[in-house]
Design a protein around this nucleic acid. Sequence first.
DNA 1: CCCCGTCATGTATGCGCTTACATGCCGTCT
DNA 2: AGACGGCATGTAAGCGCATACATGACGGGG
Lengths: 356, 356
Amino acid sequence: MYAHTYALIPWCGMRDSQTSRPPRAIDVAAAAGVSTATVSRAFNAPEKVLPEVRDKIFAVAAELGWLPNAAGAALASRRTWLAGVLIPTLDHDVFAAQVNALQAHLSASGITVLIGCSNYDLDEATEQVRVMLARGIEALAIVGEQQRPELFEMISARGVPYVVMYSHPPKSVHPCVGFDNQAAFFKLTRYLLDLGHRTFAVIHQPSLDNDRVLARLAGIREALAGEGLALRPQHIFEGQATFEFGRESLKTCLAGPGPRPTAVICGNDTLAIGALIEARAMGIDVPGTLSVTGFDDLPIAEFTAPPLTTMRVDNAAIGKAAAGYLLTQLKRQAATPQPPFEAQLIVRGSTGPVGA
Amino acid sequence: MYAHTYALIPWCGMRDSQTSRPPRAIDVAAAAGVSTATVSRAFNAPEKVLPEVRDKIFAVAAELGWLPNAAGAALASRRTWLAGVLIPTLDHDVFAAQVNALQAHLSASGITVLIGCSNYDLDEATEQVRVMLARGIEALAIVGEQQRPELFEMISARGVPYVVMYSHPPKSVHPCVGFDNQAAFFKLTRYLLDLGHRTFAVIHQPSLDNDRVLARLAGIREALAGEGLALRPQHIFEGQATFEFGRESLKTCLAGPGPRPTAVICGNDTLAIGALIEARAMGIDVPGTLSVTGFDDLPIAEFTAPPLTTMRVDNAAIGKAAAGYLLTQLKRQAATPQPPFEAQLIVRGSTGPVGA
DNA sequence: CCCCGTCATGTATGCGCTTACATGCCGTCT
DNA sequence: AGACGGCATGTAAGCGCATACATGACGGGG
């Protein structure tokens, strides 16, 4: 398809032969009649090269299709221009949005982002960080501060600046860019308490090794304890964050013995929507006899029946702020500790006064 | 927090002094009483090293916290173990799922994945690929085959194996792993035609530089043409893939002059759900007086009111297959051209016979 | 008119690792 | 017994680039 254009690139035609290799700086230098030092300067410190020479070098480089070999550059300059981000999975809007923003911001500064997915496994997380460090990342953003000690040891040992993204507990030993999960769920629960609710159910994600989920549960319990209340074990449901698990949990919950909850707090919007779906299927009036809350404010939350009361966090802003923090760290400037982001309560139609 | 453990790592305490640097292979070699060649072999070809020597080296390496410097390794071995993937944005379930699967699969083979986001901009796409090539990627997956010629020239010139992901038009000049967008929408439209629909509206994503969207429109037109039908300009809506655009497009459409469409084909589920929301708001009976279709089969599609008729593509399978293809290419094995994936029609409640 | 500073460029070293080749040891076959 | 082959390891040469330092040209001031 583009065969005709290959001819423009001298060494292209040879790409089938084993001798073919990408051009090097020395090839560009030879073709431009300068030394490799000047080629290097033309790209890395253009002001140090005479404009005419520089243009000649650029022209030759373009003609040869030369791209500076990053491995060579990294070795010689001791700079990789690489940063890493460790997340549980890309397959989740929240993390994808954060990574997207982080990458966009770092990329604008010429930094390439390596993405490591732990799949919610601490050992895999540690391994991913090991690989990233071997690749020479100069900064690292980590989702969640619950990690193996070795992970923090490795990055501290190498003096790599890092930041914990998404979480931001009040007394973290780590630099954080995020919000306080516990405070957010405290606020949410307080809101429901103020509506008169006294019996609660909770449907949440797997809490193993997950400080965000644990903090959320703590926030709920803290608010309840303030009123002398507690969660009944039969009202707590832990499982995968799917519509299905939200549905079956609500079903089980309402079929159970003892006092029926008047409010269901869900670990995220997906679970809440599942609960909403089941409530509709069972003919339960939401919010008349049951209030339901979510977390994340997915775009769909506004359009469920009834619209979902939830909490919103600006994930793109978190990603951008994390990038900004790392960037100032890389410049060896003072690390300005960010105040936590605020999770915003979005009251919609899925919550109401108890017994309304 | 982990200060007590730092003491276990000899050079940690010095990380504040400017002289501190990560250990090198030669440090490990010295501490283990061998040469750097043996250290290298212990990690890259363990069977060539006596078990006792190997264990000693591993122990010393762990103690020193040594990680092989990837830049040095890449330079010497001419292997970077890097692959790239070019996508429009991570902020979209479909691409995130594909990348997640691709990365999981390649990572299992020791390959690190570089992710480049084009933000639907051809120049940015080209630039991202340029950066990836400079970093030494040995393989590349690209979403969408509509790219600047320079992009394909660059990768061909370097002999980097690549694969187009997601799309799979019948006569592509590129190796593809994906499905035939045109055929999928042909099938979908055919289904609606068989239900008796004759007047159609289309609400779709921006088509500029987007071969997937263009192919989908072509599929619709092809099916209609088979019945001597065509789309009226006032029934075509192009805009961002949001609920909001789906809503306002349906509203505008139904308020417009001329014959009212009995079926609305949406470019994806988000637009379709927007249309569904608007239809409910307007009190329009779906599917009684209006059929609505989506594409992607988002998890929520099953639970809309009415449940959404849509098409499903296994994005994780595409990512995995793309990784598999690149892996065999890297082994210089025969490239087995994959047959296209099939987009599966999922008939639910949002479509029905015309005028039912 | 000479000296020295400035600027543009060249020279040459080494970043940390892999690997072809060299070395030396030991066991085995003739 | 001698030769030879195989094996474990060492030696040393780069991989492609950036950069400290050297060089040389040029110009201005004393």
